[in-house]
Simulated scan of single mutants.
Amino acid sequence: MNWYGVFPAVTTKFHPDGSLDMDLFFKNLDFQLDSGVHGIILGGTLGESSALTTEEKITLTRETVKHVNGKVPVILNIAEGATQEALFWAAKAEELGASGLMILPPMRYAADAREVVTYFKTVANATSLPIMIYNNPIDYKTLVTVEMFEELAECENIQAIKESTRDISNVTRMINRFGDRYKILCGVDTLAMEELLMGSCGWVAGLVCAFPKETVTIFNLVQEGKIEEAKKIYRWFLPLLELDIHPKLVQYIKLAEHHCGVGSEHVRAPRLALIGEERERIERVITDGISKRPKL
């Protein structure tokens, strides 16, 4: 598994009646692949995983693996409240041909450090798939500390970290402690270039769903040392990237996909499509960004 590059956390596409829209999903998936992304992540927050049925998740995983056909790795996110459910999805991901897993700490129950470490080790020891730990204490209220990663280092297939603590210095802290033992991927759009400059080797991205070419170009320019060129695109991108750090990031990013012609704004309840002043405000950000889109 090469934990390097831009990994879109793709949205799940729905018809107006709420059923899966696989044709539109594949249209966006092809847009991502044609733009040069390095992997695909299914079933994250943007994928509205908590509102999907087991069969829908299986369908999405199976059909994505088939459609991608080995061009890039397909990663399945696991965000469960029970260890047995996490084990089910780890086994199912392997059965369906996924390339790896992204795993959050236990959901809903506020597990302590011993419980979180045991949870991750239990899943890791039950699968041969490579694993990225999703460390997001802001949204999910559990911090995976440096000391916890010290304990997890014995599991060879725990290989990467989606760094979403929103503390840029944590990239340096982890590198100082572990060297290249863990691959670090930025998980917060508004800090992506900063973390790439500090040593992250990847970007688990949100606005990439609507703007993949710009996202991949920023990543590539940073890798090539063309920092000033990357800054210009990143500064244009920032107002759009800020849509990723709001509780309604799903609605915001889906509206951006709609305006870019690669998605729809249909969401699954309890989420609702945007209306009124909020919709007008977010559309202004999106349409202003599109009108000023840089030439790459």
Rank of each mutant, 00 (worst) to 15 (best):
T83G: 00
T83S: 01
Q84W: 10
Q84K: 13
Q84M: 08
E85C: 04
L87P: 05
F88T: 03
W89E: 01
A91Y: 09
A91G: 15
K92E: 14
K92R: 13
K92Y: 07
E94D: 15
E94R: 14
L96K: 14
G97L: 13
A98Q: 05
A98M: 05
S99K: 01
S99T: 07
G100K: 03
G100F: 03
L101G: 04
L101E: 02
L101Y: 03
L101T: 03
M102R: 01
I103A: 07
I103W: 09
L104I: 12
L104Q: 11
L104A: 12
P105R: 01
P106Q: 06
M107R: 04
M107H: 05
Y109V: 12
Y109E: 02
A110T: 12
A110Y: 11
A110Q: 12
A111K: 04
D112S: 03
R114N: 11
R114W: 05
R114M: 07
E115M: 10
E115A: 13
V116S: 13
V116E: 05
V116H: 02
V117Y: 00
T118Q: 06
Y119M: 12
Y119D: 10
Y119G: 10
Y119N: 11
F120R: 04
F120Y: 15
K121C: 08
T122F: 04
A126L: 06
S128F: 00
L129A: 05
P130Q: 04
I131M: 09
M132S: 01
M132R: 00
M132I: 03
M132F: 01
I133F: 15
Y134E: 10
N135T: 10
N136I: 13
P137M: 08
P137K: 08
P137C: 07
I138A: 12
I138L: 12
D139I: 02
D139P: 00
D139Q: 07
Y140C: 08
Y140T: 12
Y140M: 10
K141L: 14
L143E: 15
L143D: 15
T145S: 15
V146T: 15
E147C: 07
E147V: 06
M148N: 00
M148H: 00
M148V: 00
F149G: 07
E151P: 00
